[in-house]
């Protein structure tokens, strides 16, 4: 029982980061029908900027907000130079474009910065734990869960209470009708990329804190977790994306602690296999959404 609760908290900590990433993927899928394989590159870019700033002597408290800003700018930039040019193209084209952007960004870091891993120091408190009864909880997990809750509440507030959020939800539900209502498609798509970038930035802070380094290929892992969590939840559903992220995090932690001996190393593989099974039997994901209108 204790172990289970322990796992659950660890899993939620991990899953929170995935949830933020997945939400960013879902927001973009909603307005553009684009499965964004380049989503993880926002973290790669932020990671390098963070590394540069650490070398300037900045502390985590200064770097953290900068990471969010960089992720938003990078997201908007990628939309401008690549995705805005393939709006409304076939799914095939959209997927391969994002796949190409993913590789292009990481290749540019290899070329201009170098293939070597750049390390920076993690914040001092990252390994601290506090004991609640028999359960040892990582402070980091608590911070992640707390910040994620706040971020999700803020996102919900933006989506529910602001006109931009309303426009975004309307566009995700029915793009053509949203345009008829006077919603500017450029603005709503750019807004979606900005929001998606902000979410990736917040997730990126914790991702980078935990990793303590960045490399050209750093984007693969967060991209996969975000995309898969969004898919598990049912693409286009924002609620599903959050649930998918949490489920993925908990599944990973539980499997890692429960799988016997040698197989524990295969956790990631088992998770992928489970996802494949999920899609074989429920191709639409956990929460199915009517296919969103395309731009």
């Amino acid at each position: 029982m204790t172990e289970l609760i322990q796992n659950l908290i660890d899993g939620l900590g991990r899953g929170s980061i995935y949830a933020l990433l997945a939400l960013g993927v879902a927001v973009i899928f909603g307005v553009m029908h684009l499965l964004n394989f380049a989503h993880g590159e926002l973290i790669t870019v932020s990671g390098y900027v963070a590394y540069a700033m650490f070398n300037q002597g900045w502390s985590w408290y200064l770097v953290a907000p900068l990471i969010v800003v960089v992720a938003i700018i990078a997201s908007l930039l990628i939309e401008r130079v690549a995705f805005s040019l393939v709006r409304g193209a076939s799914d095939f084209t959209l997927v391969l474009t994002s796949f190409g952007v993913h590789f292009l960004v990481s290749a540019m870091f290899v070329m201009f910065v170098g293939a070597r891993v750049k390390t920076f120091s993690e914040p001092g408190w990252i390994a601290d734990t506090i004991a609640i009864g028999p359960i040892n909880v990582e402070v980091f997990d608590l911070v992640v869960i707390g910040v994620t809750i706040v971020t999700l509440l803020l996102t919900v507030a933006i989506l529910q209470k602001t006109m931009f959020g309303l426009a975004l939800r309307a566009a995700a539900a029915d793009f053509d009708t949203a345009r008829l209502m006077g919603i500017d498609s450029n603005r709503v798509i750019r807004g979606a990329f900005a929001l998606s970038g902000a979410l990736a930035g917040i997730a990126g802070i914790f991702w980078l804190m935990r990793a303590g380094n960045t490399a050209p290929s750093s984007g693969i892992d967060p991209m996969l977790k975000g995309v898969l969590a969004a898919l598990i939840g049912g693409l286009g559903s924002m609620r599903g994306a959050v649930l998918g992220g949490l489920a993925l995090g908990v599944a990973e932690v539980v499997l890692r602690s429960q799988l016997p001996g040698e197989a524990a190393a295969l956790t990631e593989g088992v998770v992928f296999a489970l996802i494949a099974l999920l899609f074989i039997f429920r191709p639409q994901g956990i929460i199915s959404v009517a296919t969103a209108e395309r731009v």
Binding site: A82, L96, T97, F99, G100, V101, F103, L104, V105, S106, A107, M108, V110, M111
Partner: peptide, 9 residues
Amino acid sequence: RVVLGLAMV
């Protein structure tokens, strides 16, 4: 690698 990524996009 950059050329490959550019070719794809």
